[in-house]
Design a protein around this nucleic acid. Sequence first.
DNA 1: CGTACTATTGATAGATATCAACGCTGGTGG
DNA 2: CCACCAGCGTTGATATCTATCAATAGTACG
Lengths: 240, 240
Amino acid sequence: MNILTRKLEAVGSLSDADKRLLDSVIVRSRRVKARTDLATEGDVPDEVNLILEGFACRYKILPDGRRHIMAYLVPGDFCDIHVFILKHMDHSIATLSPCKVVGIPRDKIIELTERPAIARALWWSALVDEATLREWLVNIGQREAPIRIAHLLCELLVRLRAVGINKGDSYSLPITQTELGDTMGLSSVHVNRSVQILREKGLITWKGDQMVITDIDGLIAYSQFNPNYLHLGERAMATR
Amino acid sequence: MNILTRKLEAVGSLSDADKRLLDSVIVRSRRVKARTDLATEGDVPDEVNLILEGFACRYKILPDGRRHIMAYLVPGDFCDIHVFILKHMDHSIATLSPCKVVGIPRDKIIELTERPAIARALWWSALVDEATLREWLVNIGQREAPIRIAHLLCELLVRLRAVGINKGDSYSLPITQTELGDTMGLSSVHVNRSVQILREKGLITWKGDQMVITDIDGLIAYSQFNPNYLHLGERAMATR
DNA sequence: CGTACTATTGATAGATATCAACGCTGGTGG
DNA sequence: CCACCAGCGTTGATATCTATCAATAGTACG
């Protein structure tokens, strides 16, 4: 079962025909180096990118050169579905790590949306993306740095678990502390000190790409994490 | 022309039949007092609320009692379209000022989405809401307090202008400084001082409900405001 | 074996929160 | 009609959080 199917089945089961259709869109995937734009603000893309492996992000650059990362795109996530309605990209998308990506042409997407179960799952996915944005807004607006970071780490575990690319309470987090800072609205120095607090509390280990959550219950409690906003069914929540 | 039609026509023109259908959903509107929940986190609403007059907001309450406002809902905005896909509300919705609201039953919404032009306009509206959320994330994550507030004031002018309820560069902003703080991730004291900076710079006047932007070009420049993310067509942008 | 990026640390500056107090205003009950 | 009360805006003093600057060390990579 491909990763997209796995993600969409969290919403509701799909017929064999639906699954075959989903398989058929994942052909001719390409490899993309780390830190490469998949789409740039102002673009009018003609196909939709789906991440198969690796981490990508949505970001904006401010006039003074600062960057803010507004979303992480992990395997199973679509980059630019809005293309069908909104003319130009109002933000950019870039890989963070090396990625495997597949570009799905317009026609194929339309074919997908003609299947009610798939259309519903895609709509669910878009709404969850929006709910995640709202939670990020609260996170940045209200929580102080170490808690803010801890909250993100919980979210990522749940999201990666939903597509089965966690390893227990560990996962690959191929980003730098500077990138984490651009995500959390913090300087890289402050991220460093905040991460050290999480380490000292015995909540996590983070070395290279490997994020190990050593005390998941502690991390959830510390970060006030409540996964409701991800709207995962019971099935996905139980999957380890 | 009702306010919903006005908003949706910013995307593309609608047929007379479409307009009549839109008129038909705005019946039996009700008045709601200020500071009243229209939906509460955990609810499973059965109809969709549309704001006709007044300001409402999306918000979440944190375990320690803090509140974060994640969106302003102004006339023409739908509160809870996601109801069709996501079971329960992952946030609450409340009026800020006295409002006129209409509850649109499920069936009516389905009827609306059977019209291609209306369906497209509703989809556009949802995508713009999401783009707005991304811009708010950048705003809170990267800009300091007075600029952050200025940016919001620019956005509100553009949005209210799009539905024709501005008065030149002035509009009714029926919220307190504390509520503005809950929106911007700032304390009310700091909001107060930041607003004074905007006043001293000659950019705005704000007394009671009346927000007067006294130097719109200055405010746009100061806040680095770029309305691209609102994806308004040329028509809406030119409307005063 | 340089080179460049990343992580880390210390010192200092700046932004924002918190606490406390006061005046103003609008509503409300006597 | 007036006294009182509650909420809001405002101000000052102080504490806390976070950014910036600068330096060092580890690490990957050509």
